[in-house]
């Protein structure tokens, strides 16, 4: 297996634990530092974005929306 072939399957591996991984992929990982680093740091990339939510929504926005919905509702719901 080449690194390109391995990376093409990255999608399926991201959430898999090492044990759930296909044998040929595990074998490539064992012998290829590049792909091991790529897999680990890609996982870390996702984890960092998951745990640091960007773009905090202003709380006033929810109130504004609520008011707009109520206004429409009074007209006919």
């Amino acid at each position: 297996m080449t690194c390109t072939e391995f990376l093409a399957l990255l999608d399926d591996m991201i959430d898999d634990s090492a044990t759930a991984m296909r044998a040929d992929l595990q074998e490539h990982l064992r012998t290829c530092d590049h792909c091991e680093v790529t897999l680990n740091t890609t996982r870390k990339t996702i984890q960092i974005y998951r745990s640091h939510q960007l773009y905090e929504m202003p709380s006033s926005l929810r109130d504004r929306l609520h008011a707009a919905i109520m206004a429409r509702c009074k007209k006919g719901c």
Partner: peptide, 19 residues
């Protein structure tokens, strides 16, 4: 799938600079 893979790899590459 193809966008996700490219997005992940590009983000990873760019974050490497800092991490």
């Amino acid at each position: 799938k193809s966008r996700l893979l490219r997005a992940r790899l590009q983000l990873r590459e760019r974050l490497s600079r800092y991490f």
